[in-house]
């Protein structure tokens, strides 16, 4: 049999996925076509439809954050411009589904993230709703395609605090990890 030079790394990857109960992992750019495939996969999860919809909504917001704001960007023929690269996984434990994203962020964004998430995690449902509505009324920001509502929406859809971390790598680049949970029983 021909020797497969990368078989070891695939085995290692598989072991990591199994060990962490990761049912879906994607690294790279996230186009709308990829989202379609993810949607099909989520719809096969054994749970209520409303939970699948929540998971899909979270995946979309996280993937589109990566698309627009990841500091690591590659040129895309399809879009005719540079788009963001990152990693996204769906895993689960006994009580929750966990959607996790990872991407490099600019030094400027890294500074904001901590205070922003601390604030969001403090708010109750009613306060989150009011904040969402307040931000939604604001005009579109210059040169930013998003609505600046993604993190608030994630916090609301999740019903749990948002877990996050910024790791600084050997090149002093900031890698932002965000983990959002959805309860299996609503």
């Amino acid at each position: 049999m021909e020797h497969l030079t990368d078989s070891l790394s695939v085995k290692e990857l598989k072991d990591i996925l199994v060990k962490n109960s990761i049912s879906l992992a994607m690294q790279g750019t996230f186009s709308q076509d990829v989202m379609m495939l993810i949607q099909a996969k989520i719809n096969k999860l054994p749970n209520q439809k409303i939970i699948s919809k929540k998971i899909f909504a979270l995946v979309i917001e996280m993937a589109q954050n990566i698309h627009h704001y990841s500091d690591n960007r590659v040129f895309s023929e399809k879009y005719g411009k540079d788009i963001g690269v990152g990693i996204l996984t769906i895993s689960e434990n006994e009580t929750k589904y966990i959607i996790t994203s990872g991407n490099y962020v600019s030094a400027e964004d890294a500074k904001e993230i901590n205070s922003r998430f601390k604030y969001l995690n403090k708010l109750n449902d009613e306060e989150l709703k009011e904040l969402y509505k307040k931000y939604r009324k604001q005009p579109q920001r210059e040169n930013k395609p998003g609505a600046n509502l993604g993190f608030i929406d994630m916090r609301r859809k999740s019903g749990n605090p948002l877990d996050y971390e910024i790791q600084t790598d050997e090149n002093s680049k900031s890698f932002f990890i965000l983990s959002v949970k959805v309860n299996k029983e609503l």
Binding site: F56, A57, E61, Q140, P145, G146, A147, L149, G150, D153
Partner: peptide, 10 residues
């Protein structure tokens, strides 16, 4: 609507 993202929401 069955689903819309935050960007469509605005």
């Amino acid at each position: 609507m069955t689903y819309f993202n935050t960007s469509s929401s605005r």
